[in-house]
Deep mutational scan, measured.
Amino acid sequence: NNDALSPAIRRLLAEHNLDASAIKGTGVGGRLTREDVEKHLAKA
């Protein structure tokens, strides 16, 4: 659900052409954090 993404996370996802649903969020309520996105990028 993109409504739960902060603007910074949306921008980071867009810059790397990532789909938020492909990344498991570890923030409050399962929200994506910058660390989640960076860890996903490091794996790729």
Score class of each variant (00 low, 15 high):
residue 11 R to E: 14
residue 14 A to N: 09
residue 7 P to N: 10
residue 19 D to G: 04
residue 28 V to N: 08
residue 41 L to D: 02
residue 11 R to V: 06
residue 28 V to T: 11
residue 37 V to K: 00
residue 7 P to M: 11
residue 32 L to Y: 03
residue 37 V to N: 00
residue 32 L to E: 00
residue 3 D to S: 09
residue 5 L to S: 04
residue 8 A to N: 08
residue 31 R to A: 14
residue 27 G to K: 02
residue 27 G to E: 02
residue 21 S to L: 08
residue 6 S to I: 05
residue 36 D to L: 01
residue 38 E to F: 15
residue 20 A to S: 08
residue 21 S to Q: 09
residue 22 A to C: 05
residue 34 R to K: 13
residue 29 G to N: 13
residue 35 E to A: 12
residue 42 A to F: 10
residue 13 L to D: 00
residue 17 N to S: 08
residue 36 D to M: 02
residue 32 L to R: 02
residue 12 L to S: 05
residue 17 N to V: 04
residue 29 G to L: 09
residue 29 G to P: 02
residue 13 L to W: 02
residue 14 A to D: 12
residue 12 L to D: 04
residue 31 R to H: 07
residue 29 G to I: 03
residue 14 A to F: 10
residue 15 E to G: 07
residue 28 V to M: 12
residue 27 G to N: 02
residue 26 T to L: 04
residue 37 V to E: 00
residue 37 V to H: 00
residue 31 R to I: 13
residue 35 E to F: 13
residue 31 R to Y: 08
residue 31 R to Q: 12
residue 11 R to S: 08
residue 22 A to H: 10
residue 23 I to Y: 00
residue 33 T to F: 01
residue 31 R to M: 14
residue 26 T to H: 04
residue 41 L to Y: 04
residue 4 A to Q: 14
residue 33 T to D: 01
residue 2 N to Y: 04
residue 35 E to L: 12
residue 4 A to V: 12
residue 33 T to G: 01
residue 31 R to T: 14
residue 44 A to I: 15
residue 14 A to R: 15
residue 13 L to A: 01
residue 38 E to T: 09
residue 43 K to S: 11
residue 24 K to I: 13
residue 33 T to L: 08
residue 34 R to C: 05
residue 9 I to M: 11
residue 34 R to N: 07
residue 8 A to L: 11
residue 24 K to A: 09
residue 44 A to W: 15
residue 21 S to W: 09
residue 38 E to Q: 10
residue 26 T to W: 02
residue 9 I to T: 05
residue 5 L to M: 11
residue 2 N to F: 04
residue 21 S to M: 09
residue 20 A to D: 04
residue 22 A to M: 15
residue 38 E to Y: 15
residue 7 P to S: 09
residue 3 D to A: 09
residue 19 D to S: 12
residue 31 R to S: 13
residue 21 S to T: 10
residue 25 G to K: 05
residue 41 L to I: 15
residue 28 V to D: 09
residue 12 L to W: 06
residue 17 N to R: 08
residue 15 E to H: 14
residue 31 R to W: 08
residue 32 L to W: 06
residue 34 R to A: 09
residue 2 N to A: 11
residue 37 V to R: 00
residue 42 A to Q: 12
residue 36 D to A: 02
residue 3 D to R: 10
residue 19 D to C: 06
residue 24 K to W: 06
residue 44 A to Y: 15
residue 6 S to D: 15
residue 5 L to G: 04
residue 11 R to T: 07
residue 11 R to C: 05
residue 26 T to N: 04
residue 1 N to M: 10
residue 14 A to S: 12
residue 39 K to F: 10
residue 22 A to E: 14
residue 24 K to H: 09
residue 11 R to F: 08
residue 12 L to G: 03
residue 1 N to I: 13
residue 12 L to M: 10
residue 32 L to C: 02
residue 27 G to R: 02
residue 15 E to I: 15
residue 8 A to D: 15
residue 32 L to A: 02
residue 43 K to L: 14
residue 40 H to C: 04
residue 14 A to H: 08
residue 31 R to V: 14
residue 11 R to W: 12
residue 20 A to L: 08
residue 27 G to W: 03
residue 19 D to N: 10
residue 28 V to C: 00
residue 24 K to F: 08
residue 38 E to K: 09
residue 19 D to E: 11
residue 23 I to D: 00
residue 33 T to E: 03
residue 11 R to P: 00
residue 3 D to N: 10
residue 34 R to F: 14
residue 15 E to T: 12
residue 37 V to T: 01
residue 24 K to S: 09
residue 16 H to D: 01
residue 44 A to R: 12
residue 22 A to D: 14
residue 12 L to R: 06
residue 31 R to L: 11
residue 14 A to M: 09
residue 33 T to H: 02
residue 37 V to W: 02
residue 28 V to K: 11
residue 39 K to L: 13
residue 11 R to I: 07
residue 28 V to R: 11
residue 32 L to F: 05
residue 31 R to P: 02
residue 21 S to Y: 06
residue 35 E to T: 10
residue 22 A to K: 13
residue 18 L to S: 02
residue 7 P to G: 06
residue 8 A to P: 04
residue 39 K to R: 15
residue 19 D to T: 10
residue 44 A to T: 14
residue 41 L to V: 11
residue 13 L to C: 04
residue 11 R to L: 08
residue 43 K to P: 06
residue 8 A to I: 11
residue 10 R to Y: 05
residue 12 L to K: 06
residue 26 T to K: 03
residue 9 I to H: 04
residue 17 N to C: 06
residue 39 K to Q: 12
residue 20 A to I: 12
residue 22 A to W: 11
residue 8 A to W: 09
residue 25 G to I: 04
residue 10 R to F: 04
residue 15 E to Y: 15
residue 19 D to A: 08
residue 11 R to A: 12
residue 23 I to P: 00
residue 30 G to I: 02
residue 25 G to Y: 01
residue 4 A to E: 14
residue 3 D to G: 11
residue 16 H to K: 03
residue 33 T to N: 03
residue 41 L to Q: 02
residue 11 R to D: 14
residue 14 A to C: 07
residue 26 T to G: 03
residue 22 A to Q: 15
residue 16 H to N: 07
residue 12 L to E: 06
residue 30 G to N: 06
residue 29 G to M: 10
residue 34 R to I: 15
residue 4 A to D: 14
residue 20 A to K: 06
residue 8 A to Q: 10
residue 26 T to C: 02
residue 36 D to T: 01
residue 5 L to R: 04
residue 25 G to P: 08
residue 4 A to S: 14
residue 17 N to M: 08
residue 20 A to M: 08
residue 14 A to G: 07
residue 39 K to Y: 12
residue 36 D to P: 00
residue 2 N to G: 12
residue 24 K to R: 13
residue 33 T to Q: 04
residue 15 E to Q: 15
residue 5 L to A: 06
residue 35 E to G: 10
residue 28 V to S: 09
residue 26 T to A: 03
residue 27 G to D: 03
residue 33 T to P: 00
residue 34 R to S: 08
residue 1 N to R: 07
residue 14 A to L: 09
residue 23 I to G: 00
residue 44 A to K: 13
residue 27 G to F: 03
residue 29 G to W: 04
residue 3 D to E: 13
residue 35 E to K: 13
residue 31 R to G: 06
residue 2 N to T: 13
residue 10 R to S: 06
residue 34 R to V: 15
residue 12 L to T: 05
residue 24 K to V: 14
residue 39 K to D: 09
residue 12 L to H: 06
residue 34 R to P: 07
residue 12 L to Q: 07
residue 1 N to G: 14
residue 19 D to R: 08
residue 2 N to R: 08
residue 6 S to P: 13
residue 39 K to E: 11
residue 3 D to P: 11
residue 24 K to L: 12
residue 2 N to H: 12
residue 6 S to F: 04
residue 25 G to R: 06
residue 13 L to P: 00
residue 14 A to Y: 12
residue 9 I to Y: 05
residue 36 D to W: 02
